[in-house]
Amino acid sequence: MQTFILRRLLSGVIILFVLSVTVFLLLRIVPGDPAIRRCGLNCTRAGIDAIHLELGLDKPYFPVELRRGPPFLSFSKDSQYGHYIARVLKGNLGTSELNHKPVGEQIISRLPVTVEIMVITLLFTILIGIPFGIISATLRNSPIDYIVRSSSVLGLAIPSFWVATLVLVLPSEFWGYAPPIGRKIALMDDPIGNFKQVAPAAAVLALGSAAGIMRLTRSSLLEVMRQDYMRTARAKGLQERAVILKHGLKNSMIPVITVLGLQVSGLLGGAIIVEQIFTLPGLGDFTLRSLVLKDYDVVQTMTLYAGVTVVAMNLLVDVSYAWLDPRIRYS
């Protein structure tokens, strides 16, 4: 198990490295020079060159680069990527162009909002998706099953941004109520006020993911219920409740956990949307605003942050397999 985790961590580092190189290159090969915007109006060729020099944009991209002619490779100690990665490893993530504050500082102040949205969304997803999935599978073809199945089909089709917009628009029209938007209340200052701000956003996001989990729990449990050991469990006189919850549920959870892990990565995208609508100052909002500005440092950092989250989630999912199904051993 330890070697497995170590190996996965190592491959995670490789994935993050490849991700950082890809995004680094992508940001530089697309049209649009950040120096031109910095330079402002009345910009001259010399002015742009001076900014290039100041930002180090005149240097080669990578320490090792391909050349058209012999010797086909060129090496330089003084490359843009080399400086970037050395800086990041020292903990300096650069400066945001949004407000000229350090990127690291901004992430720390905005992280709690996004993490809160994601944790509450996952809680809603699990608390709604799994129980209703079980009910639907055990009462197959009953009216409840049909209701659960139709609502999950609907939940997968409804765009979260539309539901969020309706949550803003409809209550204000009919009851004169508006979800509390605007400045974020810190969790520690006022837990209830804080929950009131984050819960609508999380509920909207959970609608789609709970629908997916409901559907998956149902089909996975139905598959498990066909297995011989389920018949054995019933035959030895266990109550149906114990058969389903002890023997069925745990065995049916592997695909569900896999998808929950993938949903976390989807939620990083979903957070961008709900943070816009409910004007919550989280990382999604930061990412979107910095993208519009083509802010190199922030976009690079945010992709790395997404990469780290995803790698960590995948590891967590794989480790949980071994706990759910002891037949799965990692060596």
Partner: peptide
């Protein structure tokens, strides 16, 4: 595994 919406946003915004 990489967030699809983030990928879409980065590619469309940059291009």
């Amino acid at each position: 595994a990489f967030p699809a919406l983030l990928l879409l946003l980065i590619v469309t915004q940059l291009l």
